[in-house]
Design a protein around this nucleic acid. Sequence first.
DNA 1: CGGTAGTTTAATAGGTCTATTAAATAGGTG
DNA 2: CACCTATTTAATAGACCTATTAAACTACCG
Lengths: 207, 207
Amino acid sequence: MDVNTEQSMEQSILETAERLFLEKGFVLTSTTEIAKEVGCNQALVHYYFRTKDNLFNTIFEQKFKLFFQHIFDLGNLDELSFTDKLKHIIESHFDMLNANPKLPLLIISEFSRRPEQVGILKEKLQTVPQKLFEKLNAQLNAEISAGKIRQTTLADLILTMVSLNVSLFLFIPIAGEIASLNEAQRQFMIVHRREEHVNVILNSIRP
Amino acid sequence: MDVNTEQSMEQSILETAERLFLEKGFVLTSTTEIAKEVGCNQALVHYYFRTKDNLFNTIFEQKFKLFFQHIFDLGNLDELSFTDKLKHIIESHFDMLNANPKLPLLIISEFSRRPEQVGILKEKLQTVPQKLFEKLNAQLNAEISAGKIRQTTLADLILTMVSLNVSLFLFIPIAGEIASLNEAQRQFMIVHRREEHVNVILNSIRP
DNA sequence: CGGTAGTTTAATAGGTCTATTAAATAGGTG
DNA sequence: CACCTATTTAATAGACCTATTAAACTACCG
């Protein structure tokens, strides 16, 4: 088989399923529809993945990791000041979401509506880089002690960042439906808010 | 019929449907299940509301209004400074969400996943109090001109507020599942973040 | 060329869901 | 009581969904 030009059915199913799950969520995506989009028989989906839950978990283990672990993956720019590191983390987290704008809703809905099922992936997420958190935390506390940053915690800062970044991409479809944003307006909003999130957070930690 | 002690079936169906829609979303809630919880025949749900879509729209027109219009409903504390008004708006918005913690996910998922259906309610939301927005906006611009607040827009401030407040209640189920928060920890987090959201926003607008 | 393992399909069981229909029941009014 | 309207139920049509099974197809290997 020509591996370069023609992908395996298994791979096609995976990619189509990923796209559909992200677009419509777990419940509204049927194995029948996945098969139709791939152009294969519906039984083939079950041949490769046995159950719809399996297929979902196979795909989104990786997505969950992306979503949760990305935050600390680049806090190791050692030479930078805390503020510059923070700016970098915010922008990089924002960019990750911009590249995966439908990921937050999927993760939030699946966690909220089918916690038992998604909880299976829980232990695989526990690999949060504790080390990097501790290092950043130490640097933050040093700056607080030096009176350069107001009293706060790293957890609060991260929660604020994730809240701002995630919400933007959650709200864009609503804004699109209600305020009828066109593509240019949508793009402007994204660029503008990227800056604004940095401003808000950096301003908010001044003493 | 004893109206005081025994509600009508129609009312029971409405209340049960509201609870289930909020818990599990539109797709995962069936008219069969609503009927079972109410203790009536499934056809009765359709007798009163004809379709599941009707039932959903009947219930959530009011919820949508609550969600979108609450923001400006109390910006009319004329004597307060802009900063104090803003603090008041943030806290009041937060409290509304705390009283309806499952509302944000429902609204966001339904808008994102079934925009056609929910778009029907769009025009009913257009009644945003333009007047109050303009008044607040004028006051903000005055303070900016006076150099008391950094350059920003009211829309940005509101988006930031909604992002912070909404996200907290979106993330709590996830935090509960992953970090296994108990009820006391959950409550502490809510009280703490209510203060923090005010701090972040008010600090962030200093010049 | 025959066999064999892996892939794909057709067919279908068994379940649930929405919505409709016709029949049963209840409650009030003349 | 007889009637009438509004409510409630039982039954079911029709659609779709997940998962399984057995049969067909393909390609490679000896």
